[in-house]
Design a protein around this nucleic acid. Sequence first.
DNA 1: ATTAAAAGAACTGTTGGCAATACTCTTCCC
DNA 2: GGGAAGAGTATTGCCAACAGTTCTTTTAAT
Lengths: 241, 241
Amino acid sequence: MDQNLQQLNPEDSEIKQPQVYQILRQAILSEQLKPGERLVERKLAMQLGVSRTPVREAIRKLESEGLLKHIPRKGVVVARLSPQEAWEIYHIRAVLEGLAARLAAEWITAKELEHLEKLIAEMEKAVETKDLNYLNELNSQFNEAVYGAAKSPRLKQMISNLYDYIVSFARVGYSLPGRIQEVLAEHRALFEAIKKGDVEEAERVARKHVERSCESYFVRRALAEQEDAERLKKSRNYPHL
Amino acid sequence: MDQNLQQLNPEDSEIKQPQVYQILRQAILSEQLKPGERLVERKLAMQLGVSRTPVREAIRKLESEGLLKHIPRKGVVVARLSPQEAWEIYHIRAVLEGLAARLAAEWITAKELEHLEKLIAEMEKAVETKDLNYLNELNSQFNEAVYGAAKSPRLKQMISNLYDYIVSFARVGYSLPGRIQEVLAEHRALFEAIKKGDVEEAERVARKHVERSCESYFVRRALAEQEDAERLKKSRNYPHL
DNA sequence: ATTAAAAGAACTGTTGGCAATACTCTTCCC
DNA sequence: GGGAAGAGTATTGCCAACAGTTCTTTTAAT
């Protein structure tokens, strides 16, 4: 627990709960608060410079989104995804994004379509210059644009929520060789389907895309665990550490 | 606001927030608290015999599930589904239930399959005796059994949440002539697909089933509005009422 | 009678404190 | 020395009160 969380301004008369929520959410997604780590209301309240109530409510909200796990009379811990849960989430996302793509293919406007096209072009440039950070940013924008085109706020909301779970791992999903090109091709195929207004194709492509992401997530996760095991093996040689 | 909400036992040392949550949830789903109606923390707290804190937390939870709508510094009201939102929810449910059916077809056990078969048989009996209440109960059980067979707790949770929204209208979905037989046939088709282990077919059938429910929801809703309009017209003749 | 300002009422957001519960460390008995 | 009982501590659940904000009603001036 290093815990140098951003502090709230005490004289800030804004409503504090949403700010606390944002800070905690960021801390969890950035893994400043690590999976399995315990959150203590009073400590967080002290650190943030507010009373327990806003912290409490923020925690409850994060809990209902699934980022925290609450054990009655014991407290809350940062949720740790089991492989089974990660698989579930990816497959739920797959069908939801499929639906979003279908709706987008049906309802997209000329202006939105143009925006998507620009994003695709930008992505191609970013792939060539291997600017992974920018590519990630563009990726999010592309997804956002598709969800927006679907004209279904609730669907968009649900997808974003699910997206949060795996954001930390997904970010490094590109690290697999060849995956970058694959992702680009998949996005392009989705764009084409939406442009044609082919709802079936759009749904199929989007769904497949998420399923592929799921696969590379598990490959990535397996690699990470292998690395962990190696580290562990090494550290056994130096038990005093 | 008639508000004869069930009271909590004051000497009850159980944790109160979940109880308050259940009571409010029931009140909303049973339309004892009607869409658009405002919920006042202090009033509810008084009526339930607790302080504002548990009420507040229960409200926040219901809000995050979408049953309540929160307007900052104003309070919360019972969410009223616009036709657009109802449509969204049905279509999200359609793909999620499709996924659940697919997973069920893949992972169902012999015992679960047997249970489904019994439920189908019961439903046929209930259709003949026109026992609508029992049929509804069986319906829920059948759905639960399918979701359970999918072995995906999170998916099950999400579907149940969405189900709540439309439960009040769905209950009368049968009232359309011929719909009862249709529903039964759809359930039977789903059962057969799951039994065969045909994942594609199971998904397609389940999805179609929800889409049909959506249609009959809107027919039902249109009828209800027509009735409302008639009532309004009548009441105009007696403006003093 | 109409309108605008001001007082008042009604709520939510926030606070710190109290009670109940779960965990931990010490002490005592075998 | 090991294990069980008990005191002490940490932490959540709950509460009543206060502060700030929004809505309503009253009042006064035109």
